[in-house]
Amino acid sequence: MVICSRCNQGRAVIKLRSKGIYLCEKCFKNYFMSSVLSALEKANVLDSLQGKRVLVASSGGKDSLNALYVMYTLSQKYDIDLKAILIDEGIEGYRELTAKAFLKFCKTFGIRNRIVYLHEEFGFSIDHVAKAYFNGLIDYKPCTVCGVLKRYLINKIAIKERADYVVTGHNMDDEVQTFLINIIRGTVRNLIKEGVLTAGSSGFVPRLKPLYYITDKESLTFFLLNGFETPRIECPYASLSLRYRVRLFLNELEYRIPGTKERLLKLKEKLQISLLKSEKRVELKRCIICGQPTTRKICRACEIVLKIRGVSNA
């Protein structure tokens, strides 16, 4: 039996390889919550949560349910007006199962919630998009469409709900994967505003990531220790994405060289500071179709929707 390095008493439930320590259930849960609080403090959000409207965007998976739990806990202390949404993008055999877990979780904690269906908003599902992609009718991978349209929809709902913050379950692994993907694609400028808090500009509700300093493994450990439940399933299209391969690569590096993810995250933050200094101010326009802010004439979401509808109607 391995003993906790902090209290020297409890049976260890996790080894934090990058720090070379073991933690028991109690010390790990304290570590988890203090990592979340320090992320929110660093983003200067913690003290301003009092009375705020917070919309948690959940997928029904472990990370966003953990984020929902964290915000629920904080809502007790800070009198937060908390609501959760799940976007059902229409992936059969996957989303309806995590949606059930989401509803059960919300019921357990008495959290107001809503499920929004992608096909009701845009007239097609991600299964439909995937079919068109596999048939060579469109170039967009289902993951690209899913990511862009969900972000668009979440922001639209947050504006309608007059939310002060949108909370997501992105964790350290997600952030480091995104960093590497942007390096691979040569689009590091995309990272300028991504952090614990992505400040909202006109038409964008600020996005908050309380699990920013929590690894995937820590998130799963916290989820299981709390007895939370969600089906352990994977999106059927996940393996099509570059993220999938980057994730495997980073996990292998983390195993061989513990602390890799933390160091990459710190590097990203340093890079952001220097990129911000040289950033040219870009004037945002309004999309001529939907009116949402964009740097283009037609925003990326509308561009994708037009293309897919064009294929569907052909």
């Binding site: 997928s59 966003s64 995590t98 352990r232 399933i233 999106c235 994730r247």
Partner: peptide, 8 residues
């Protein structure tokens, strides 16, 4: 052995 499935 519980895997941390990717998704979102």
């Amino acid at each position: 052995v519980h895997s941390a499935s990717p998704g979102g």
